[in-house]
Design a protein around this nucleic acid. Structure first.
Lengths: 225, 225
DNA sequence: CTTGTGTGTTACCTTTTTGTTATATGTCTT
DNA sequence: AAGACATATAACAAAAAGGTAACACACAAG
């Protein structure tokens, strides 16, 4: 994901802060959206789906804590990172903030450099969470480039095999039922013979390693590390 | 899950810290277990199966990092949340801590209020994650991975046995009538002989333990802790 | 057009799971 | 204590599930 694709929602009732912080972050390449109070913040968050929300605690209309709680309730914003802006020493805010579902807080007065590195750190964590390339043991799976490498060795897999591997590794340990595999890899319209999955699993076993794929009889297959 | 059902293992070599933090958390209603070094921590964790472990990094005998690694290896503790206690500025510990499988860290000096809200936040996440796994006494049932573990020992069960166990444990203590079991595990269309359930119960008894399954004559079976 | 590759099928084979039966053991009632 | 139930158990049989090799077909590249 490119930096310029990242949206940050900045919420504070003081226009000065919005401007200074906004300026600093946009010059780093982030997309900035602003709001001046909690009500507006919730509204914009819902509409714009930002990746990160920086929320002042003390605000008119609806304070940051409440706004945070509201936002956390929205299912499509549950992976959004929320960080509070609080005056130093306001211990209470920190406490309430975590309770409300915040991920971090930044203390005022704001030092732009500190702010930016904190934002970067938070977003890095975010990216790691929903990364496109998976790394499991010796195996790296690059979904963008459609290739994998095992112990540094690059392996080209045919599409179906890749998709099957990709599915199984998306949740290592989880048992994928045959139905589920058919549905996700083949698409539920297509009807394939009963041994098709097995054959593909066998091919993966040949290429990736026998132990990585466990059969759960009567249920399906799982990938193990 | 009630708050009073939540166990927290607190590990630090300084008795003062154990006392203060322990006091604060117990007065919140959590059950507190303590240990004074890594070796002891691992032992107690294995035995008590706490939901959250607060682990000091610097300790004699075995430091927090190593203890964390050890604990993460135990299959029935893999959903336990581990958070480190580190001196401010010890950046290295934090990094190593995350590598070892920690979920968070708390910096010293500890402010009780901050600590408590952090604990709450962590446990909230835990509850959300963990709706799939049942834990009853020594037994952990992982419906997603189709496996169970008993006292840390992993056991693979065939599908019908797994489903039967899964049903009985879904409401420990409740007596499931034979009809009900047939319906839920076999499906009401299928007709099986009268002794089929007994045989499966017997197999579970062999594997899980004789005492866990009680026969209620004329009615059915129940799982007891 | 030929060749090669990806994909899926089929026909066995093996193993595991599941279910049945016959017999034993209990337990409650009268 | 005998009979009627109900469950336990072991040995066995049947069915299901998965593994594998060989092959068939489609389609793209040369």
């Amino acid at each position: 994901m490119d930096k310029t694709d990242i949206k940050i929602l900045l919420v504070d009732d003081e226009p000065d802060i919005l401007e200074i912080v906004g300026y600093n972050l946009s010059s780093e390449g982030y997309q900035i959206i602003t709001a001046e109070n909690g009500v507006e913040a919730v509204k914009r968050a819902k509409k714009e789906q930002p990746h990160l929300i920086i929320l002042d605690v003390m605000m008119p209309e609806m304070d940051g804590i409440e706004a945070c709680e509201q936002i956390r309730k929205l299912p499509n914003l549950k992976d959004t990172i929320i960080t509070f802006l609080t005056a130093r020493g306001e211990d209470y805010s920190q406490v309430a903030g975590f309770d409300a579902g915040a991920d971090d807080y930044i203390t005022k007065p704001i030092k732009p450099k500190v702010l930016i590195s904190k934002v970067k750190a938070l977003l890095r964590r975010f990216k790691e969470d929903n990364n496109e390339n998976l790394k499991i043991g010796d195996l790296v799976i690059d979904r963008e480039e459609y290739k994998i490498s095992l112990k540094g060795e690059e392996i080209i897999l045919p599409r179906k095999e890749f998709e099957l591997l990709s599915l199984l590794t998306s949740k290592p340990g989880k048992v994928f039922k045959r139905d589920e595999i058919l549905d996700k890899v083949w698409g539920n319209e297509v009807v394939v013979g009963g041994r098709t999955i097995d054959v593909h699993i066998r091919k993966l076993r040949e290429k990736i390693g026998d132990d990585s794929f466990k059969t759960v009889k009567g249920v399906g297959y799982k990938f193990v590390d």
